[in-house]
Design a protein around this nucleic acid. Structure first.
Length: 709
DNA sequence: TTGGTTCTCATTTTT
DNA sequence: TGAGAACCAA
């Protein structure tokens, strides 16, 4: 076990050990398994190993996330699991849909049970290998838990019928496979003789079991982690995995890495002082290699808007005065909702930026639909996918017909039932044509899943089912957006094909397991372009920036809680770790921002400064109060007054004062000129000719269009 | 069945 | 604020 403090070269250790194993000890690359927490980390690790060794041996090492590694094993071993090799991987959004349907069938008073909560409870149970029956037994008089257990039972039964696995199943079923099946177990224990796990502090119980069983024979495991950076408890991560490592793997040796190569001493001292307030930790002494450094700035702003304006001004200032690259800056926030204002203010100030993390691409209806089509073609047993696209595009199958169909389906595969119903001409004459055509379409597509490359398949599919036509017939901003998403989906397929050349089923896995997908706006910014990064504190893990801004350090937001009473001690410690992760991303400059008013959940709220700010030592800190919007007259921040332009955001739709000829800037399309305008208020529709992207019709409301000042 | 509207309600992080 | 459900009219 390597206990590696922030910035101590964690990943480097893993990469170099792998190189050492192969080069010095002559270990065959395919006997090494390296598990990371995110796909991005896996890619990075692969790259770094490639640069140390050669392409071919690097390619033979099994590197991936727990989920992707398990998916690969399960596909290979599907026979032992009574699964088709084409089993579906259920994404989170679909997990919700499935749970909701299960809740509906149970006649549970819906107000008592938030599907979101049920999902987490089910997930927790799964990760502890608890079956629905066990859960029901142990629920006792806990009514909510009882309901959850019954939902769980239906949910799980339906997954099995559909030959579908959710994220938790991927791990849990792999563990079961290895436990129940000596031959398979032997094979994988042999195969993965050397196991390396990154971010061990974020593993959950099932993942621990997986590592434990795989390593049982050769006992060659190296885990790397930092208990102070454990920030995924809500997802089942158990910090005890790292705290109990020496007990769980007798004879283990622990190495501590306590030299920090990233941050200045000032930054580190500040972060460390805050962490002193946590109790459950191993205790490391991180020492900065870079002594001294500028003081950490703690800035208080009047409102969230002022915070955003301050950011833009500060970025511009540092860019001009200190000749910083835009990519030197990381702006961190606790919740995704916070990024909106910041994006807007960067837009107005013409600062190139990029939002790292979930883009919502996968939440788009179009993406879910197309994904469901592909999955049904690959796995016609997947009734959930069938149900999703049954009436998309419209085929005249509404609620009543759907009910009827579901009734007849029972626990058989819906698509098969549909086939036979068409055969028996159960549907009324005026509908049967379209329904039969749908069935034929799926069957046709099913035939060519193996023989057609991914982009061709996707295009053919869109064509065959008339998925595009439904949007082409109208010319509204919404339909334009839909068409764009469809295009984006096609490009994703092309991109996948170009990079991997893999088959359709691999594309499905890729879509399900790579939901991260970073966004590049405005325009088409390439991956490593020079942009400011906007990201959540969680997404910041593993990254570093010369200058870091942590925003929204306020009670309720960071630490994040709904009501003080449900903030447990453990929750609070995790929140502190989350902030700690953020602070330790900074190499040279660290800004801690808080606002006194913030627009939250549709309301203006007063907020108090985060308690974490009170835990910081004064000697490495400079506190500045800039409340009252007069950022321009403000005392010295990092730049003495400004050659930075004043950034003042115009309210999105307050000024419905767009006129023909106005120069505007759009989140996605960049700069352009207004050429037409219809309607008033947030409903107004506007036509803009963009300099690079051409003419677009936009809905003024959600389009995020700003007048350039 | 579909399209449109209004209403309400909850707001964390993501493989 | 924005998503989803519930409701209503054609």
């Amino acid at each position: 076990m390597v206990l590696a403090g922030a910035g101590s070269g964690k990943t480097r250790v893993i990469v170099h050990r792998i190189a050492h194993l192969i080069r010095e000890l002559g270990v065959k690359p395919d006997r090494i398994l390296a598990v990371t927490f995110t796909n991005k980390a896996a890619r990075e690790m692969k790259e770094r190993i490639t640069s140390l060794l050669d392409d071919t041996s690097a390619a033979r090492i099994a590197i991936g996330t727990f989920h992707s590694v398990c998916a690969r094993i399960l596909r290979r071993e599907h026979r032992s699991l009574k699964l088709t090799s084409n089993f579906t991987i259920v994404t989170e959004s679909e997990q919700h849909a499935r749970v909701k349907r299960a809740v509906d069938t149970l006649n549970i008073p819906p107000d008592r049970m938030a599907p979101r909560q049920i999902v987490t409870r089910i997930s927790n149970a799964k990760n502890r290998f608890q079956e629905p029956e066990k859960m029901l037994e142990s629920a006792g008089f806990d009514l909510m838990q009882k309901w959850t257990a019954r939902v769980y039972e239906i949910y799980q039964a339906q997954l099995e019928q559909d030959h579908a696995l959710d994220f938790d199943d991927l791990i849990v079923k792999t563990v079961r496979l290895l436990e129940d099946n000596p031959l398979v177990r032997d094979a994988y224990q042999e195969r993965y003789r050397y196991i390396l796990v990154d971010e061990y502090q974020d593993t959950n119980h099932a993942q621990y079991r997986l590592i434990s069983i795989l390593s049982r024979r050769y006992r060659n495991v190296m885990v790397v982690g930092d208990d102070d950076q454990s920030i995924y408890r809500w997802r089942g991560a158990e910090i005890s995995n790292i705290l109990n490592f020496e007990r769980d793997f007798p004879g283990a040796r622990t190495v501590k890495l306590e030299q920090n190569y990233r941050s200045t001493q000032a930054i580190l001292t500040t972060a460390a002082a805050m962490m002193e307030n946590n109790r459950r930790r191993t205790g490391k002494k991180l020492v900065a290699v870079r002594s001294g450094g500028e003081k950490v700035m703690q800035v208080t702003l009047g409102s969230d808007r002022e915070e955003a304006e301050f950011l833009a001004k500060e970025l511009t200032g540092l860019h001009a005065r200190e000749h910083r690259e835009w990519s030197d800056f990381g702006i961190l926030f606790r919740t995704n909702a916070q990024s909106r204002l910041i994006e807007e203010s960067c837009l107005v100030a013409q600062i190139p930026f990029r939002v790292i993390g979930n883009t919502g691409f996968f939440n788009r209806k179009e993406v879910k639909d197309l994904f469901a089509y592909i999955r049904l073609a690959l796995n016609p047993l997947d009734s959930a996918s069938c149900l999703r696209i049954l009436n998309t595009p419209r085929r005249g199958i509404g609620a009543a017909t759907r009910e009827m169909l579901m009734e007849k389906t029972g626990d058989r595969p819906m698509f098969r039932v549909l086939e036979s119903l068409v055969e028996d001409r159960v549907f009324p004459g005026h509908k049967i044509g379209r329904i039969a055509d749908f069935v034929r379409g799926v069957l046709e597509m099913e035939k060519i899943t193996r023989t057609t490359d991914v982009p061709a398949f996707v295009r053919l599919m869109i064509e065959r089912f008339g998925y595009r036509e439904q949007f082409e017939t109208e010319d509204t901003p919404e339909s334009t957006a839909s068409l764009e998403i469809i295009e984006e989906f096609v490009s994703a397929a092309e991109e996948f094909h170009r990079r991997t050349g893999d088959t359709l089923d691999k594309f499905c896995d890729y879509l399900a397991l790579n939901q991260e997908q970073s966004s590049d706006r405005p325009g088409d910014v390439e991956e490593d372009q020079n942009t400011v990064s906007l990201l959540t504190l969680h997404n910041a893990k593993g990254l570093e920036f010369p200058v870091v801004f942590i925003t929204g350090l306020e009670e309720g937001l960071c630490p994040c809680y709904r009501s003080l009473s449900d903030l447990t001690e453990d929750d609070l410690e995790e929140e502190r770790r989350i902030v700690y992760v953020g602070m330790t991303r900074a190499m040279q400059k660290l800004f801690l921002l808080s606002a006194q008013r913030r627009f939250r959940a549709g309301k203006q709220t007063d907020s108090k400064p985060s308690r974490f700010l009170m835990e910081l030592p004064e000697k490495t800190l400079e506190r500045i109060n800039l409340q009252g919007a007069r950022t321009r007259r403000a005392r010295p921040v990092s730049f003495r007054d400004s050659d930075a332009p004043a950034v003042k955001m115009s309210h999105p739709f307050s000024g419905n004062d767009f006129r023909r000829g106005d120069r505007v800037v759009h989140k996605r399309w960049g700069t352009g000129t207004v050429i037409d305008l219809k309607g008033r208020g947030p409903e107004a529709k506007i036509t803009v000719s963009f300099d690079r992207a051409g003419r677009k019709k936009l809905l003024l409301g959600p389009s995020r269009l700003f007048k350039m000042t």
